[in-house]
Design a protein around this nucleic acid. Structure first.
Lengths: 213, 213
DNA sequence: ATGTTCATGTGTACACTGTCCACAAGAGTA
DNA sequence: TACTCTTGTGGACAGTGTACACATGAACAT
């Protein structure tokens, strides 16, 4: 019963939860070096297990990366929800809905800046509309980032800020805008700008979305 | 003088222009498989040269990828300029300026869809504001994509569509938006959507920029 | 308790990668 | 003609993903 979970030393032949251990190791590597740093052999090493053991849980190195990537998306969702919590409803339904959409944006960018490795990893694996709401990509509260944008937009429609006829597909506009900014901040021309400058750029961008949606 | 350029067979000891040949090989690999497919040894193989010969021209595999990436950005610029050409000025300066910005967007997305591998490669290497206008990233007409957005925005200011006080930093908004859509189309939730659907999403996004800038 | 089964981990091996080192070829110059 | 410096070669090594055959032991049926 002395189940040394996180520690790589183990006495039993069976690991206990190797799959989870590999994913956690993968996330840690991704945090430091992005998707390229997610190395299968290194993950098994950190889990204190032989390289081939990984193949009992993942068909491929890419399969591991896929799961790691999904996990990272879940973290992004958590970060966005944290932003929600930081701006609780005031009672002004319209302003609250607006703030909700902004929170998606600021949370998203915050995640990109605080965890660039995880951010890059989250979007290094091809996705599609079917998988966008997949439970494996959800955060602690069970929602994916993509669903969170949708929620914010629904609130905008409910309070009459956004005309219903503009609702369908609106997540793509909001998403693309914020995602683009995230990429620019991490790997693009905006790299190395000071925090206040990035904050300003974020605010302007969200203003644009607010006006133009 | 029988300089068999593109062919990998060569008679002389010296290659002639190995550096260029390696870059071209790299671009071809990037076209098929994105940045991960840019393999140094394979490039030398295609150039008909031993693996280590590459190190006379690039310090690193990453150095090669950097140059390949810059080249891809140049292609993106070409694609955008082609979109300019497809929509020549009509005489209505205001409408022309608007169309110019739209062309940046449609050209950009067009490039992403037509050459996903090159697009991914172009943005796989970290960049910064200093390098954004670097000549190595320019297209045939000597302008980088980033500079082309700037040009379009300048035209909007010149025709009075965009208030001058909003000009500084506006390329970041335009760029982020379009870049984000590009990523969504290639690797994100919008992957696999039909062309008309993507066209519609692009139009809506550009409308948003037009309204909200 | 005992034997069997089958998921899970091990060991060996191979092809392939990036990269280091010492050496070779030969174009350009003294 | 001899010397030099750039460019390409050959061999080697560590590290990676992954295939195959084998070992272990937890769970379950007897």
């Amino acid at each position: 019963m002395s189940d040394e979970r996180a520690v790589n030393a183990r006495t039993t032949y069976r690991h206990g939860d190797l799959r989870e251990a590999l994913v956690e190791a993968g996330v840690e590597m991704a945090r430091e070096g992005g998707p390229r740093a997610v190395v299968l052999r290194e993950a098994t090493r950190r889990a204190g297990v032989s390289p081939n053991a990984a193949y009992r849980h993942f068909t491929d190195r890419d399969a591991l990366l896929q799961v790691v990537s999904d996990t990272c998306l879940g973290f992004a969702a958590d970060r966005i929800e944290a932003e929600f919590d930081a701006h609780p409803p005031t009672g002004d339904a319209e302003a609250d809905a607006r703030m909700m959409l902004r929170s998606v944006g600021t949370g998203y960018i915050g995640f990109a800046r605080e965890e660039p490795g995880l951010f890059r990893t989250a979007f290094s694996v091809p996705d599609n509309l079917q998988r966008a709401g997949d439970a494996s990509k959800a955060g602690r509260r069970g929602r994916t980032p993509f669903q969170l944008v949708g929620l914010a937009l629904d609130a905008l429609v409910a309070t009459g800020v956004l005309p219903p006829e503009r609702r369908p597909g609106a997540e793509f506009q909001a998403w693309a805008t914020v995602h683009g900014l995230g990429m620019l901040v991490i790997d693009g021309p905006l790299r190395g700008l000071t925090d206040p400058m990035i904050d300003a750029a974020t605010e302007r961008l969200l203003d644009m979305v607010d006006r133009g949606l």
